[in-house]
Write a protein that binds this DNA or RNA. Sequence first.
DNA 1: CCTACCGATCGGTAGG
DNA 2: CCTACCGATCGGTAGG
Lengths: 196, 196
Amino acid sequence: MAKIITAKNVTKKEVITQHAAVLFRQKGFAGTSMRELAEKLGIEASSLYNHIGSKSEILQTICFAVANEYNSQLEKTESSSEKVAVVIENIIRFHIHMMLHRFDEVFVANHEWKQLQEPFLSNFLLQRKSYEAKLIALIKKGIQTKEFVNINPHVAVLTILSAVRGLEFWQRHKKNLEQKSLEQDIVYHLLNGLKK
Amino acid sequence: MAKIITAKNVTKKEVITQHAAVLFRQKGFAGTSMRELAEKLGIEASSLYNHIGSKSEILQTICFAVANEYNSQLEKTESSSEKVAVVIENIIRFHIHMMLHRFDEVFVANHEWKQLQEPFLSNFLLQRKSYEAKLIALIKKGIQTKEFVNINPHVAVLTILSAVRGLEFWQRHKKNLEQKSLEQDIVYHLLNGLKK
DNA sequence: CCTACCGATCGGTAGG
DNA sequence: CCTACCGATCGGTAGG
């Protein structure tokens, strides 16, 4: 028998997770109660447990959904034959895109992963480390091909990732800058600091 | 009568605040219990209240101590007659210094200020906004004096502040880089992206 | 600084 | 999906 397709193909569990992401961003994982989340959805707290296993499971869902998205995007660019500077630029643009369009989930994954329980905590950190190692390898390649100045690759990756994460501030300030020009300025500032 | 000077001139309240900063960084404000904090200090939870008024008060103390330090440093540089690029460089170096040497408090002020209660929340945000406005004005000045490229000053400040905050990652990774070379690489990457 | 304790709230379950 | 409820833990107070 075929699965029933709900409206817009969104399960109740996904709706819960989305609302949870907003609350976890605003008040933190520990600072958000299941009763608060239930109220947002117009149901009783106990009813949540028909769709999710635990509060902790919601956090896991959010964190690993985000991690998977970054990982699969990076895998795509790895098979590219473009110049390193172009690959790095694409990665920076992808990060900016995620920050702007998946703000709540990305924010939660960035800040609340610490509240994950084992073995999820270790798994998450492992994925993050491997992601950063791949970026560092890319920068190294760019230095070898003489595209980039001889900067410490670790520090370059740190600087780029952090600067892009700074869009969190931006969301908070709700400035009316055109997204495209914002993106261009950040990419310029970061790449210009790398290039010879 | 002269005030009694305790050993190292550190009050019990300051000791409590320091330990709280470490816990709040590791587990968040909401995720840390007063019983946990008391255990770290080897006393009962109720004994804490002889030195502090409330859990919330500890967070206020941490956040505003950090804010004051950044503000007074910025005021000092404002009276400087140096070139804008030098002033910006000094500010970047001060931020790096704070991140490395006052890590717990800075981290808590950066992440847990959201948990402040009114009117402290509004006051904190106001101070932050005014700090950023001063930095933006500085970048504008640098563009006028032709020291910097014609980048959007808001975006430049965002990129710089975020990149420096990224030292949070660095602390986590506990790399063995020399502090000075780390500092130099970040300053270079960020300033080179601004300069003509 | 401790013992003893408070009301409130937490995540979660039983049963329908 | 709800009502009713559980044990655990929370921030904090009284009194010494």
